[in-house]
Structure formats: structure tokens, C-alpha cells
Design a protein around this nucleic acid. Structure first.
Length: 771
DNA sequence: CTTTACCCACTTTTT
DNA sequence: GTGGGTAAAG
């Protein structure tokens, strides 16, 4: 038996050894899914399958890169380079780059990211003289996206009763019309949006038998990661590609399906067996990641969902620590708690920064953690959010490159026609657009002849010189490489110079970003071609298509840095960490306010909760805050309903204070209540930075740094009386000032020597009577 | 045509 | 708190 097979358990081996015919692997969280996938590919190659004939599709560039790397390791040679591994979007973009002419697109088509798409939609909405408060670009875009993901053309959309009714009911009956105009404009601009990469790929295969045959032949073995996240379009493409040989292997976990908002449907995983007769099904249920306790909690939570493939994760690992439930008064306190806990656990349990992850529901929640980590001097990195290539200055610069490659690209043109300011204003622009739309010419064509749009004098001449400049860049492309052209653009437009002069903090950051962009182009042009890449070249066009599909999370090379990682739960899927902070567990945030009204989306939120729990190997904190700033004003939320779904036996509630008490009535479960509230003393005191720091340090001491005495033992709460001297595990020594309330929820006001005055619920707090 | 000053809507999650 | 869009002033 080959070495690589010895490292697998029985089930995993079963999956790897299956070579021909459809295979579905139901892989629970942490069950070694990537290992199986990579080992199976290596095994195929060991058994004589040509590496050029294997296609593996993932959802993130990172997952693809990791797979490639691991296969290389198993094989110990360069054969893995020939594999076709990538995201759905990047693989299809690459294929379309070679085949686009068949469907009437230029091969150097532009890829619109969602910003470009929304900008274009906005102008179309305006042109139709519709109110963009009713026809919100975002909303229209998501409707169009849904249509494309369901492989519905504009014409079909207009004929589809369900879609029409839906739009009529929402008082937006013209979406179908907008969809048609949008698609036409994209086509005219030589541009595809993200969804088009799937939609057009399907069109290519469905309408062009010779192309279909070519790729059916080329890809003898197809593997798909995260199958539960595929949508209709992806499903149909795979079906077409695999129709002849049916050597399709899908890996998925219905419990981790969290992308239905993007058109993903669990249906795909559920109907796989029906579509492919004789599918072999392998279930991977042994978890190699988390402790027993974490797994128990996760199993319990997910069992509440109705729709799922039954499975039960188990582990040989030890029980481990309880989950720690934390409540704080404000979001800033939450940030401080997490930073404190990281500092403490690094010392006490010898963790490194990189062992920690802070995972939240929305990107906007990162702020308080950034602040507190910075104050503690703990290195961190935020993943997600705005990608480098989406920053304004970078996009502006890239717009020039886009024009040079594809002058039909109207969005890019409009973006930079007056950047830097050269005196082509709104009035001229409107005229040009109007003329272009009326004559059916492209925007670029109209620019060639500004007089035809009724422009004369200064505006006409500036446009003429703009066109000449762009044309000179285009001709440069013949003789010079991408980097040299980009450099010239930066120089001749004056962009680089003007950013260099700007000495404000933002200005300097922008300058650096442009330099980084130039460096990245340089790096790209100078890296030699990889062997076996299909239709791969080092042109500017390829570069542009690639970077549009890049996310911030994909930035490589910085992975081994010892930093705390901050990201959304979505972004954390597929990753694991020793210690995880699941933060912001509050109603309206997690579960999100948008998901509260139907079972389906609430179950998806619960799967998201399942995902965050199962990211943790050893320790897991779950935190919520009573108050939180949103849009600059304070809002209050109840603790998330999901907290109640974890059995109390798995939870340590030592960090839950009065601050977390429910205000609503549906509390079924009491949290232990050691008081954990602190008054905000430093908010707007206007003191110097140094003073603020001092106060912060003082506060830190007060709240966490008391080490309980060795013989600490909680006394019977009923025997506590006013005036007694007591010790608290966290707050230290204090004196009982006052007792209130009845026998079951007596509240004591305690004056602590170091921590100030606290209100404490006696039935839950652990106090030891000293005298 | 460009700059400035206010106003508002904005927060799910991403290739 | 922010960023983008609009209206009025320069």
C-alpha cells in the first residue's frame, strides 16, 4: 500500500480508492475533507490518470492554492502543476478567455466586480428615469444575479410568472426590463460580471457542442469542494461537463451551507444521488479538530435544524475545557475582554497570537477589537472587507489599464475621463452618453468624434487630447510589457505625482497603494509562465481578469505571520484555530435582523453558528454585549437565542454579569451572574493620551487581575449578611454594603478594595466569607 | 466647470 | 461615523 493511504482512516480510504463513477463524500466539519480530496487526486495520478485531465473546483482561491500545495507534497514532484485547480469563477474566466469569441465576446473581455455592476445599473436606472430609491441598484443587482444563477435570460425573466409576480408584488415591475438593458450594455462594453462567468460558461457549453466536446474530453475527472454551496448554474455546468464519463466527485456538508443568499441550494447535494445512478456515498464523521465538549455543543445546536442529512460527529479527543460565555456592557468592553483574554491565555497557556481568531457576523463589528488589540500591542490582521483592488485610488488607476486593454469598457472610461480633473464635466458626459445610446455606438466611438455629440470649443479639444493619450497607451502595449505601460500611465496622467505631493496621512497611504499596485504588476509580468496552464499568457488582460477575482483573504505570503486573525464567520469557513472568540452573539446581529422571519434563513443562521463553533480546536468563547454602537448611536439587543441552544453543562458562565440579563420575557435559562460591569469613566474626559492609558490600565487591573486565594471556596449565599468581609474570584476582597431582594435573587452591593462598588447576585456569584 | 457644504442612508454574509 | 450624492456658490 502506498504511504499516503496509511494516514487515512477506513472511510477516508474508501473515498480515495474509488476511481471511476460518481462519488459523494458527506464530510462533517474537521473530518479531513481536504485531505481526502487531495489524496484522492494524488491517487488518481499514481494510477495513471493524466494530470492535465483533472479538474478541481473550489470556492476560494485560498482553498485552491492549499490543495495544489498539498498534492505537490504528497507526490513530491512537479506534476501537480498541470492540474486544473481553481475557483469556479477563475477557472471559467480562464476558459472563457480562450473561447469567448464563440459567444460574441472579445477574448480580452473585462470582468465587472459588483461595484462596477452597480454603477452601471445606476446609470441605466437613471436613463429610464426611474427613482433609484425604489429601484435601488443593490436590489436590482441582486434580482439580476438571482436570475443568472438560475440560468434565466432576460427574455425568460419577462416570461416567468413567478419572477414577474414577485416584482409586481414588490412594486418594482420593471426589473425585467432593466435586466435586459443591463445585459445588453455589458455585452456592448465587452464585460462580464461575476455571475456572467457562470452564466456565459453555461451558454458556451450548452450552445456550442464542439466546445462542450472539447472540455468533456479534457476533464476526465472532476472534483468539487464545498458542493453544498453550488447554485443552479454551477450545477448545470458540472452536469454538462461530466455527462459522458460521470467521474464526478463532490464533497460537501449540508450543515455548513451558508451561501443561499448567493443562490446556493442544498438541493444540489440532496439530489446528487438521484441524478447519478450508482453514486457511491461515503460519510466522514470522525472529527480530528475539536474537543469533545466543543463537538457536543455543535452537534446539539445543529440538531435543532429540520432539514439535514443525518450524521453525528465524534472524536477521540479528550473532553477539554467548557465553552466560556461572556457578557459585557458595551461593545468596547467586549473588545477589551477579548484582548485581555488573549493576553492572559498567551501567558498562561502558551499560545501564540496566531492561535487566536475573532469571528463576527458582519465586517462592521471589527472596530472595537482592532482598538483593544492595538492598545494591548497585540499584532492582528483583518481579513475581508475592502480588498486592495477595490480601494478607490487603485480602482481609478486600474480603470486606465482596463481602457487600454478594452476601450469598449464604458464604466472604466467614465471613471477616469475626468480623473485627474481635466475639465470634462457632467454636461459633456451626459451629451456623450445620450449620443452613444441613441446612435448605438459605443461610448468610446462617440469620444472619437465629440462634435457629433454637439460639443465644441474647449470641451471638444480636451476630449480629443484625452483620446490621443489613451491611444498612445494602447500602442505602447505592442512594444512594452504591462509594467512599463502602467508606469507610463502613472507618469503621463500625473496621478503618481499628485498623490506623491499629497502629504496627508490618507494621501501617503494612497501613494503607497499605487506603488504597491505597480509592484504587483511588475511581479506578475516577470514571473514566468506556469507549465500547462490553459490559454495562459502574461498580458495585461489576463492580469486584470485575475485581480478582479481576488479577495483580500487571498493575499498570500503573509500566512505564517504571528497575528490574531479577525474575520467574518463566512470568511472563516474551512479554517481552524486553537482558540476562537465568537463575538456579538445578539439578536438582530446574530441571528441577523434580516433572517428572523422565515425558518429557512433562520436555519441558515444556525448553520453559521455551527460553523463558528466548529472552527475551534481547544477553546471557545462566546460573547455578547448589552449595548452596542451602530451608526454612531447606542442600541440594545437581547442575547442571541442561539446561546440558549447550547446545553448549560458545556458552558462556563463565570464571565456573565448583570449586563447580560435579558430585558425581554422569554428567558428560559438563567445565566450565572457575577457582576461584570464597569462604568465608562474615560469616554469624553478630554484627558491626555497618557492619562487615558493609565486609567485603562487601572481598570484592567480592577476587573481581571485578582488571583483567588488557594483555599478559595464559595460560601453558602444564604449565610451572607450586611457588613461582612468577603472575597470574590475576580474582584478580590470587599465588604457587603447592602442586601436587597427576596430569597432566590438576593442582590448584594459590595464595596471592593480594588474593583470599586459592584452589584452581585448572590444565587450565582461565588463569594467566600472572610469575616 | 469645479469646489464646498450639507444631507442622507447605510450594515448581512462574497466570487 | 462615513461616504456618496446633490445643491449652491466660486
Amino acid at each position: 500500500m502506498q504511504d499516503y493511504l496509511k494516514e487515512l482512516n477506513e472511510k477516508q480510504r474508501e473515498a480515495v480508492l474509488h476511481i471511476d463513477g460518481p462519488l459523494m463524500i458527506v464530510a462533517g466539519a474537521g473530518s479531513g475533507k481536504t485531505k481526502v480530496l487531495t489524496t484522492r487526486i494524488a491517487h488518481l495520478m499514481q494510477n495513471g490518470v493524466d494530470s492535465f485531465r483533472i479538474l478541481a473546483l473550489t470556492f476560494t482561491n485560498k482553498a485552491a492554492a492549499e490543495m495544489k500545495e498539498r498534492i505537490e507534497k504528497i507526490l513530491g514532484n512537479n506534476e501537480a502543476r498541470n492540474l486544473f485547480i481553481g475557483t469556479f469563477h477563475s477557472v471559467f474566466a480562464r476558459i472563457l478567455r480562450g473561447e469567448a469569441h464563440r459567444i460574441g465576446y472579445p477574448n480580452n473581455f473585462t470582468i465587472y466586480d459588483s461595484d462596477d455592476a452597480k454603477t452601471l445599473l445606476k446609470s441605466i436606472i437613471k436613463e429610464n428615469q426611474l427613482d433609484d430609491k425604489i429601484y435601488k441598484p443593490q436590489y436590482v443587482y441582486s434580482r439580476i444575479s438571482a436570475a443568472k444563477n438560475a440560468l434565466m435570460s432576460p427574455r425568460e425573466y419577462l416570461q416567468d410568472q413567478f419572477a414577474q409576480q414577485e416584482d409586481a408584488r414588490n412594486n418594482r415591475p420593471l426589473i425585467g426590463k432593466l435586466y435586459g438593458q443591463y445585459a445588453a450594455r455589458c455585452f456592448k462594453n465587452g464585460a462580464m460580471d461575476f455571475d456572467d462567468l457562470l452564466y456565459k460558461m453555461h451558454e458556451l457549453l450548452a450552445k456550442h457542442p464542439e466546445a462542450l466536446a472539447k472540455f468533456q474530453h479534457r476533464f476526465r475527472y472532476i472534483l468539487i469542494d464545498e458542493y453544498q454551496d453550488t447554485n443552479m448554474a454551477q450545477y448545470q455546468i458540472i452536469k454538462l461537463l461530466g455527462a459522458v464519463h460521470e467521474n464526478i466527485c463532490v464533497v460537501g456538508d449540508d450543515a455548513q451551507s451558508i451561501y443561499s443568499f448567493r443562490g446556493a441550494t442544498i438541493e444540489n447535494i440532496l439530489k446528487f444521488q438521484k441524478d447519478y445512478q450508482g453514486t457511491k456515498v461515503v460519510k466522514l464523521e470522525q472529527n480530528y479538530r475539536s474537543t469533545q465538549t466543543i463537538l457536543n455543543a455543535a452537534n446539539k445546536v445543529i440538531s435543532i435544524n429540520k432539514n439535514q442529512i443525518p450524521k453525528k460527529l465524534w472524536t477521540e479527543k479528550s473532553e477539554g475545557e467548557q465553552l466560556k460565555l461572556v457578557s459585557t456592557l458595551t461593545d468596547n468592553d467586549e473588545g477589551r475582554f477579548v484582548a485581555d483574554a488573549i493576553a492572559e491565555n498567551k501567558l498562561r497557556n502558551h499560545y501564540r497570537n496566531s492561535d487566536f481568531a475573532i469571528l463576527y457576523r458582519t465586517n462592521a463589528q471589527s472596530r472595537s477589537f482592532e482598538e483593544s488589540l492595538r492598545k494591548h500591542g497585540i499584532a492582528y490582521r483583518i481579513f475581508g472587507g475592502l480588498s486592495f483592488y477595490q480601494r478607490k485610488e487603485v480602482k481609478d488607476f486600474i480603470a486606465y489599464l482596463r481602457i487600454v486593454v478594452n476601450p469598449q469598457d464604458e464604466e472604466a472610461l467614465k471613471r477616469i475621463i475626468n480623473y485627474p480633473v481635466r475639465g470634462i464635466g457632467k454636461t459633456s458626459l451626459d451629451r456623450l452618453t445620450l449620443t452613444a445610446n441613441e446612435s448605438g455606438k459605443t461610448f468610446w466611438d462617440v469620444l472619437q468624434d465629440p462634435q457629433s455629440a454637439g460639443l465644441k470649443g474647449a470641451s471638444a479639444t480636451t476630449i480629443e487630447s484625452f483620446v490621443i493619450m489613451i491611444k498612445s497607451f494602447q500602442s505602447m502595449l505592442q512594444k512594452k510589457n504591462a509594467y512599463e505601460v502602467a508606469f507610463e500611465i502613472g507618469k503621463q496622467t500625473g496621478i503618481v505625482k499628485s498623490l506623491h505631493i499629497d502629504k496627508s496621512v490618507e494621501g501617503m497611504a494612497r501613494y503607497e497603494n499605487i506603488q504597491e499596485l505597480l509592484n504587483s504588476i511588475k511581479g506578475y509580468t516577470e514571473t514566468p509562465d506556469e507549465e500547462g496552464e490553459l490559454a495562459e499568457d502574461k498580458s495585461l488582460g489576463t492580469y486584470l481578469q485575475q485581480i478582479t477575482l481576488l479577495t483580500d483573504a487571498d493575499k498570500n505570503g503573509e500566512e505564517d505571520q504571528d497575528v490574531v486573525k479577525l474575520m467574518t464567520i463566512h470568511a472563516a469557513k474551512g479554517l481552524e484555530f486553537q482558540c476562537v472568540f465568537a463575538v456579538g452573539l445578539e439578536e438582530n446581529i446574530f441571528p441577523s435582523a434580516m433572517s428572523l422571519y422565515d425558518r429557512e434563513s433562520l436555519e441558515e443562521e444556525r448553520r453559521l453558528f455551527y460553523v463558528v463553533i466548529t472552527r475551534a480546536r481547544e477553546r471557545l468563547w462566546i460573547s455578547f454585549s448589552k449595548n452596542r454602537y451602530r451608526f454612531g448611536s447606542l442600541v440594545q439587543n437581547d442575547p442571541s437565542r442561539f446561546i440558549d441552544e447550547i446545553p448549560t453543562e458545556y458552558m462556563d458562565k463565570a464571565f456573565v454579569g448583570l449586563a447580560g440579563a435579558r430585558s425581554g420575557g422569554h428567558s428560559s435559562d438563567n445565566y450565572s451572574r457575577t457582576t461584570f460591569q464597569r462604568k465608562e469613566t474615560i469616554t469624553s474626559s478630554g484627558g491626555s493620551g497618557l492619562e487615558v492609558k493609565k486609567i485603562l490600565e487601572e481598570k484592567k487591573k480592577q476587573s481581571f487581575n485578582h488571583v483567588p486565594s488557594n483555599d478559595f471556596q464559595a460560601s453558602d449565599p444564604d449565610s451572607i449578611e450586611e457588613g461582612m468581609k468577603v472575597e470574590h474570584q475576580k474582584f478580590g476582597v470587599g465588604k457587603i454594603e447592602k442586601l436587597e431582594g427576596g430569597s432566590h435573587n438576593r442582590i448584594a452591593t459590595v464595596e471592593f478594595e480594588n474593583a470599586g462598588s459592584k452589584k452581585i447576585m448572590l444565587s450565582f456569584a461565588k463569594l467566600m466569607i472572610l469575616s
